[in-house]
Nucleic acid binder design. Sequence first.
DNA 1: CATATTTTTAACCATTTGGTTAATACTCTT
DNA 2: AAGAGTATTAACCAAATGGTTAAAAATATG
Lengths: 205, 205
Amino acid sequence: MAKDNKSVETQQQILDAARRIFSQKGLAGARMQEIADEAGINKALLHYYYRNKNLLFEQVLEEAVRKLFKPLAVFLMEDSDLFDKIRNLCHLYYSVLMKYPFIPNFVTNEASMDRERVFKLIKLDGIIDGKNKTVKQIEQYIEDGKIRPVDPRDLIWNIISLCVFPIISRPIAGRMLYQSEEEMEAALKSRADHVADFIIAAIKV
Amino acid sequence: MAKDNKSVETQQQILDAARRIFSQKGLAGARMQEIADEAGINKALLHYYYRNKNLLFEQVLEEAVRKLFKPLAVFLMEDSDLFDKIRNLCHLYYSVLMKYPFIPNFVTNEASMDRERVFKLIKLDGIIDGKNKTVKQIEQYIEDGKIRPVDPRDLIWNIISLCVFPIISRPIAGRMLYQSEEEMEAALKSRADHVADFIIAAIKV
DNA sequence: CATATTTTTAACCATTTGGTTAATACTCTT
DNA sequence: AAGAGTATTAACCAAATGGTTAAAAATATG
């Protein structure tokens, strides 16, 4: 049994490499040899730790799905004021996705190729419980006249879209909208606030 | 020289098949044999009309990029009232993307794999001219007190996000937010209007 | 109808790729 | 230091895959 930490270090290097390669090239486009090279090891060693490509991919995908859905689950479950929740979600998403900008595209793309594989990794029950909770909260806010009448599910979908899509479209939209990389980076920094403001302005009476 | 139309018909079948396969599996995941089967022809015939996989892919990608950016270019260039433009864009995008729902994911994914390949296909000059025009229009609306002060580029990015992302995320979000496929289909029908309302509510003073 | 041209196919081929094997280096325990 | 177990490697293999070739249908042309 691996008592020393050389092996876990190697496994970590493999996972890091796999994350980079898989997220950039997808399951079909990634080459085991390339992952091994990127990890600085032999291809046979790669198979020694991760029996095959699919298993390795599944591990990387699971991690990505978890990271992508955690902020959403937190948002949907939270008990606090709706406006606070929205601001929190925007900031949480931006900090996570700025750190792992490849995740949204990686997951949505895999979902379009093999929907079920992604579903199996989402704790759907928890999400749906949270969704029902937040839908109720939104309905209550409408009833209390705190926000305009909107379809709660449309609203949730809009919020997610505004948090996630800018990251996916950044390579293209950045070049279209901004003069330079730096200008875009700067704009991105304040986007979490702007998006939250935008959403709240759209619903507040 | 092909005077008859059997050959163009075959080429069309190939393109249709290639669209389906490439958009579902990506460049690396698609198999020439599978495209040939889907088109009901021999693999050698596939190479007879399209010399190699890359050329065929490029053709499918170009078409997808054109379809994805046309509504945006129209929006950015249009001279009419900003609110009308926004409503138009939402409806245009929804009609195009409901017809070709695979396009956004296909293009964003390819952009994340090979950014330059996508850039080369976008008529960037036209888009940027239009962008400058619409940015000026938004600034004018702010100055005239018709809308709240917002960063024009953030606003444009938000509009695009709200039009495009729901299509990308539909397989996942649909199952999370709605009880059944039919319920989601129904909700989707009115989304173009809701999204336009949402955006306008967010900026109108 | 004969022949030139285009379309379609079956059989092949070279390369790539995921995965295996068997042997070697390393590390830890006693 | 010896031996057991673990980590690592080079060489290899079978299957899959993009692409080619040469011949056969089919079609157009005179």
